[in-house]
Amino acid sequence: MNWVPYEKFSIISPLNPDEIRSRMTEQVSPAFTGNFFEQLTNRYSKPFKGYVNINEFKIEPVIVGRNSFIPVIKGRVELKETGSCIYITMSMHQMIEYIIMGAVVFLTFAGFLSWLNSLKSNKFDLVSLSPFGVLTFIYLMVIYGFNSESNSCRTFLLELLDGDYEQ
């Protein structure tokens, strides 16, 4: 289990880069650029959206509705002696990372102010530590959500590319 919503790994595949590109292209639709309400309906016929170029790709799973924890998958394909090596990085959307960092800063600041206030009044209560409890809950929710989504994406890519996982 990753304790950070970020994952970097490699897939060793017996396929050559052209076969990998064709298999990826069969599973990836171009990204839809409609408005927010049009994105709530599934307009994709394939399980991923994004792009696949000659040596690289950037994709994300297609879902109906919204899920802040789906990973953005960036990859690079290199030719090896026995096939190909696909270097993959999975991370959260950058906007979600900014929102989470803002919440962390706010809750940490509020928690320390509350804790200092309880120290100043010589009355300790658990309510003064509640921002840290909320911070812990958010962290666990993000880690669980990201890991469950990234595990399913990794499994799908391993099956699609007939590859072996290499960390």
Rank of each mutant, 00 (worst) to 15 (best):
P61H: 07
W115L: 15
M101N: 15
S22T: 14
I12C: 04
I73M: 04
V77H: 03
V104Y: 06
L126F: 10
P47L: 04
V62E: 01
I99A: 15
R154V: 05
Q167W: 05
V72F: 02
T89M: 06
V142S: 04
S130R: 09
I12V: 14
F37R: 12
V104Q: 02
S68A: 15
Y6N: 07
S150H: 02
L40F: 15
I11G: 00
N42H: 06
R21V: 06
K46W: 03
Y139E: 01
D162R: 06
P30I: 05
G111A: 08
N2V: 08
P47N: 04
R43G: 11
I11L: 11
G75C: 06
S13F: 00
G65Y: 08
R76K: 15
R66D: 09
S130I: 13
I20T: 00
V104R: 01
G65C: 11
R21T: 07
W3L: 09
F69L: 09
R66S: 11
F137R: 03
V134Y: 14
K123Q: 13
E7F: 09
D164N: 15
W115S: 14
I54S: 14
M90V: 01
L79N: 10
D125C: 09
V134A: 12
N151V: 07
I54H: 12
R76L: 10
K49E: 08
I11A: 02
G102F: 12
G34A: 08
F37G: 11
V134C: 08
V64C: 06
F36C: 08
T33G: 12
F32S: 11
Q94G: 09
T155R: 14
D125Q: 10
K80D: 05
T108D: 06
N67A: 09
I88H: 00
S130T: 15
N35L: 08
K120S: 12
S152R: 12
G65V: 10
I12Q: 05
S22C: 04
E166P: 02
E159I: 05
I63Y: 13
M95T: 10
T41C: 07
I96F: 13
Y165N: 07
K80E: 13
N122S: 14
E56C: 07
V104A: 05
L140G: 07
F36K: 14
Q94P: 09
E159M: 03
I88S: 00
E60S: 15
L140V: 12
L161M: 14
P17K: 05
F57W: 03
L161N: 01
